[in-house]
Amino acid sequence: MLLTARFDNATATKAIEDGSLPKTFQAAIESMNPEAAYFTSTNGQRTAFIVFDMQESSQLPVLAEPFFASGASVAVRPVMNLEDLQTGLANLGR
């Protein structure tokens, strides 16, 4: 799965100043155990892209809520690595 969290600038700045945003990121990374995590800006907003394996959809509230609580808009979508894509393409037409 790919979780994208885009943070409101004013809220994120306050969370950086009070130390809560780094703690949010650390807790999220520990609970998700991601394959990869990237942090950048998108359209002028602080943004996190986190690739992780979600075993059950019931995990979503626990994983996304810390970002919502930090003022982020959150999107989660399934993604594949190259091996997954090759497996899927090999199964076409079966």
Rank of each mutant, 00 (worst) to 15 (best):
A69E: 11
K14Q: 15
F67Y: 14
Y38V: 10
S70R: 01
T24C: 14
Q86T: 08
G44L: 09
N81W: 12
A28K: 05
L2N: 06
D18H: 04
L85F: 15
D8G: 07
D8F: 02
L82E: 10
D53S: 15
A90K: 15
T42M: 13
R46I: 04
A90L: 06
L3M: 13
M1L: 06
V79R: 06
E56C: 06
Y38G: 11
Y38C: 09
P22K: 09
Q45C: 00
R6K: 11
D8M: 06
L3V: 08
T13G: 10
T42E: 14
N91I: 01
G71R: 01
P78N: 07
V74W: 04
F49S: 04
E17C: 03
T11F: 00
S58A: 14
I29C: 02
A27E: 15
R94Q: 12
M1N: 03
S20N: 05
N9V: 05
L2G: 01
F25A: 13
R77E: 08
N33L: 07
L2R: 10
V51A: 14
F25M: 11
F52V: 06
S58K: 13
G93H: 04
A10N: 02
S57D: 13
N91G: 08
R6L: 00
S20E: 00
D84P: 00
R77D: 04
Q59L: 10
A90P: 02
F7P: 00
V79I: 15
L85E: 04
K23S: 14
A27L: 09
D8C: 02
N43V: 01
E65I: 03
T40P: 02
A90G: 13
P78S: 09
F7A: 12
T13K: 15
F49W: 12
K14M: 02
A28R: 03
V62L: 06
E83Y: 07
P61Y: 07
N81M: 04
F7L: 14
Q86E: 11
S70M: 02
F49R: 03
A90H: 12
E56T: 11
F52R: 00
P34L: 12
R94L: 07
V51F: 15
G88A: 14
V79A: 15
Q45S: 07
T47V: 09
M54H: 07
S31M: 12
I29V: 13
A64C: 14
A15S: 14
E35N: 05
E56S: 15
L89K: 05
L85Q: 09
F7T: 04
E17H: 09
A69W: 02
Q59Y: 13
P66T: 08
T4F: 02
A12R: 05
L63P: 05
T42C: 08
G93R: 08
A90D: 14
A75V: 04
D18K: 10
A72M: 07
L89A: 13
F25E: 11
A36G: 10
F25R: 06
